[in-house]
Simulated assay, not measured.
Amino acid sequence: MATRFAPDRGLTRRMVVTMFLLGLLYVVFVGVLVALGVRALTVLLIAGGLLLAQYFLSDRIALYGMGGREVSPQEAPELHGLVDRLCAMADMPKPRVAIADSDVPNAFATGRDRRHAVVCVTTGLLRRLDRRELEGVLAHELSHVAHRDVAVMTIASFLGVVAGLMTRVALYTGFGGRRSDGQGGLPIGLVIMLVSVLVYAVSFVLTRALSRYRELAADRAGALLTQQPSVLAGALTKISGEMARIPTRDLREAEPFNAFYFAPALASGAGLAALFATHPPLERRLQQLAEISAQLGRG
């Protein structure tokens, strides 16, 4: 089902390429395990079960983990009104609307598709943003739903889950002793652990790169839908500034959910740390919004 959110061929291309590379990595990984004589079926079944649970229950899991509660139009009329307006503008089904009781100013969207999606904002965000800024943030989040990138990121994480499980199994139990040909060498368990760590690292970097691009794509789509890129830039700047006033303990509690959030609770630094970040640097996001504003001829 098409929407009026600006199509993003760059995002689609990156999602396809990332999924292809992860699939190729998965095939190689399984091939190595089989060559080493490992019966990885149990681990794969466990990981597959986790993937299915995460895929079909992602909205409930995210809401529960972040303390979100679905609210009715009577409970949050202004918030529902903004979502109604944006969904009408985008010609897309309205997701469920939720509020999380947290002073950390943020928002997220999750769900396997447009009809099973939920958009959640924190009470801290509602207190700090005006109506136009909140609309810009909601447009950003709805674009994630429209482009189905939440589902893609869930599936993309599968290989990392498998490799992580294999690493733990190899670390704590091992897969037997030394090579079966009697030639000595590294224990099979150690080889599996090293291969699993490498696979996890590669899959982690690939998914984080896709995550950073999807945030830029959501900024772009949200700004084009509302035609107010400078308002979204203002919301980004305000949220980033307010994060500095939040106690570090609260930010660290929210940090595990950074991949879901509109803005990271704790931003990564420059250099190597930026390679592992879930979001692009604030400066890059503001630069893109400034470029869109110049293209539109207004803010």
Rank of each mutant, 00 (worst) to 15 (best):
L165R: 01
G68K: 05
L138M: 01
A90L: 06
F276H: 03
A163C: 02
R252S: 09
V202Q: 00
V71M: 08
A88K: 14
R178Q: 11
G160I: 05
R298E: 11
V97N: 07
T18E: 06
G185S: 01
G164W: 03
E283P: 06
V150F: 02
A273R: 13
T207L: 12
T167V: 14
L282V: 13
R60L: 11
P264A: 14
L165W: 00
H80R: 06
G184C: 04
L289I: 07
F260G: 05
L236N: 04
H116F: 00
E78F: 11
E291V: 12
G68L: 00
A35N: 13
F20N: 02
G37R: 11
T42R: 09
D113Y: 05
L251W: 03
S293I: 00
A76G: 01
R85S: 08
A156E: 09
P264M: 12
A201E: 13
T12W: 15
I192E: 01
R179N: 14
D101F: 11
G241F: 07
G37T: 07
G222D: 06
E75L: 10
G37K: 09
T248S: 12
L171I: 10
R128A: 13
T12F: 14
V34Y: 03
Y213Q: 03
L52I: 14
G297S: 07
V137H: 02
L171E: 09
A62D: 07
R127K: 12
R112C: 09
E242F: 10
R128K: 12
V137G: 03
V137E: 00
I155N: 00
L266S: 10
T173K: 12
A76M: 13
S293H: 01
R14T: 03
F260L: 15
P229F: 12
L86Y: 06
M89C: 07
V169F: 05
L171F: 11
L296D: 04
G65H: 10
L289M: 10
V16H: 12
M166T: 12
G271Q: 10
G49R: 03
V104P: 01
L232Q: 00
R112F: 09
V152K: 01
P187V: 04
F204W: 12
A221S: 05
P280T: 04
Y64A: 15
T173H: 11
Y55T: 13
T167E: 12
S102I: 07
D8C: 02
S157A: 14
A254E: 14
P73V: 13
P7A: 12
G37Q: 09
G184M: 02
A290H: 12
E78M: 13
Q295I: 11
L266F: 07
G182F: 06
R284F: 03
G81T: 07
R208W: 08
R14A: 00
F29L: 09
P77S: 15
L282G: 05
L24M: 13
